[in-house]
């Protein structure tokens, strides 16, 4: 259990979901597990908020879903990245990096040392 977690920046959750689905198509819980693993459990997420975010991404056509069976043979909804979602991920990563650079620049942090 983490005692110190970071609040999530607005919009970052979408970015992380897309990134997670780029690795493999999985259910919501799988997405969450990937984010936890990839960020070293450093982010604090209200786990439930993952699902409205997934639904929104699906509505925008970046993600599709289909019912399938999970590894332990339970009925689960699997999410997958669409080609459109793949493109979106690339632009969002670019945007985030430019954003982070700008903030770091202002804070006088040398990026190469981070």
């Amino acid at each position: 259990m983490q005692t110190e977690t970071l609040e999530l920046l607005r919009g970052t959750l979408d970015l992380l979901i897309l990134r997670a689905l780029k690795v493999e198509s999985t259910h919501g819980y799988g997405v969450l597990k990937w984010i936890e693993r990839a960020t070293g459990d450093a982010l604090k997420i209200e786990e439930g908020s993952l699902y409205p975010a997934l639904y929104r991404l699906q509505k925008r056509g970046w993600v599709t879903s289909d019912w399938g069976l999970s590894e332990n043979n339970r009925r689960a909804r699997f999410y997958a990245l669409t080609p459109k979602g793949r493109l979106q991920l690339e632009t969002e990563v670019d945007d985030f990096v430019r954003f982070a650079r700008a903030v770091f620049l202002a804070l006088d942090v040398n990026l190469s040392t981070v």
């Binding site: 819980y29 969450l32 786990e47 699902y51 909804r77």
Partner: peptide, 14 residues
């Protein structure tokens, strides 16, 4: 039913 299923699946897994 789908929404219910999805949530309970998540809770069970955790």
């Amino acid at each position: 039913a789908d929404v219910e299923d999805e949530i309970s699946f998540h809770l069970d897994m955790r």
